[in-house]
Design a protein around this nucleic acid. Structure first.
Ligand SMILES: [Mn+2]
Ligand SMILES: [Mn+2]
Ligand SMILES: [Mn+2]
Ligand SMILES: [Mn+2]
Lengths: 221, 221
DNA sequence: AATAATTTTTAGATTAGACTAAATTTACAA
DNA sequence: TTGTAAATTTAGTCTAATCTAAAAATTATT
């Protein structure tokens, strides 16, 4: 069994090796976990002794099969609880991450399985991220963002790649939430900002915002 | 804010001062928490510094108003989560305590209030224990046990005063669960064991078991 | 009241996880 | 290839929570 802290390190290493490639560097972990490199090194030794990571001094780390299993288990719990909070307790999508950071460490296999069933075995969390099933299998992550849609085309919002409450509330205010269908009118050449038609209103969003909105291209309205 | 450990100490002190009277003794806390008296003393100093308990060396402890508020908050969360596990996730009443011991430390006021609402503001947990409301107010604890019912009378089971899985599974096997109506046929003089009519079956239970079953006396069947 | 038993506290260690400062290794550029 | 910058590890502390063993205080018993 792992401590909360160990689980958080494993989850961080997992996420970092998803975005960039492995091996994951000490400093990257330290930055993501808001801690110091020296603390990370201490923990890496411990995780290595427990055979949760492969680690050679100065060479970065990768998760072992066992370590990845644990990490995916934590991610599964995190995302299932986020679904619970939004679907059953009516939280908004910008409020759930922080609470799920705590709930993801509750340690009961039966609880996770029953929660999954209670929620109807959801495949995606409220931010569009895939939920691993009991065996750790999950759908691919979304990878088409709004900035990649050709002008004149339609798209439906299916997720986000940035999870800060500030960003999510910003989208909420713009009525850019999951399921919303929009038309891409123009991508400004100068700064990459994007003009959209959403709910019959024309709006403008920055390139950065557009790139964090994940979409499915739609053939028709 | 308190650590998990501090919350557990406060909850234990609270429960001990409910059954016996205050002040609560160091050894009683140590026994209930499966730890050593020396560890308890250390923690008592810390809780005193945080003004969560009144404490004089060798004289035992009582919760301050603030300490009691925290303790009741933890109890509230524990019992709400137990209701959730039984009512929504179909756990049995003997499986929920251990999981609730973890969930009770999740730290989000909004979560507790929304969970309470989601569950329909329950007044009792799956073992018949009262659930404090948002202001810490709760119904009185149940205090009539099966051993106190006069022979020939009817009673309905409304709670238990012992929460071990072994005891709860024993009751389950005997079909003595909450809501069940029974007739008390005889209390044996020799050993205090009790003969009951439950679901048209005559059964015998020990005095100890009978005393841990909390009931409402019923006028008629 | 004196002594014995019980309870509680203190003293001194230990472990997990974190930190700062210093040393070491690796990477990169002149 | 050599020197410097960046990344990483080591060394030494710190705090929270625990422990054992010993000392002190309280309570019970003669
Ligand atoms: Mn999240
Ligand atoms: Mn999410
Ligand atoms: Mn319980
Ligand atoms: Mn209960």
């Amino acid at each position: 069994m792992q401590s909360f802290t160990e689980e958080n390190y494993l989850k961080t290493i997992y996420h970092l090796s998803q975005v960039n490639e492995s091996p994951v560097q000490t400093n990257a972990i330290a930055e993501k976990m808001q801690t110091r490199a020296a603390s990370v090194t201490d923990m890496l030794k411990k995780l290595f002794d427990k055979q949760l990571i492969d680690y050679k001094k100065y060479q970065g780390v990768t998760l072992t099969t066992h370590g990845e299993t644990v990490a995916i288990g934590v991610v599964r719990k995190h995302r299932l609880w986020e679904v619970f909070l939004v679907e059953k307790l009516q939280f908004r999508w910008d409020e759930v991450h922080e609470i799920a950071e705590e709930l993801e460490h509750i340690n009961s296999a039966a609880l996770v399985e029953r929660l999954d069933e209670f929620l109807g075995f959801p495949k995606r969390d409220p931010h569009g991220d895939p939920i691993p099933n009991r065996d750790g299998i999950f759908e691919p992550s979304l990878n088409v963002n709004l900035h990649q849609i050709p002008k004149g085309n339609y798209a439906v919002i299916i997720g986000v790649s940035e999870h800060s409450p500030a960003f999510l509330r910003h989208l909420e205010k713009l009525e850019l939430t999951i399921g919303v269908v929009l038309e891409l009118i123009e991508i400004t050449e100068y700064d990459g900002s994007v003009e959209l038609l959403v709910n019959n209103k024309k709006i403008n969003i920055s390139r950065e915002v557009a790139q964090h909105i994940l979409v499915n291209r739609k053939e028709t309205v």
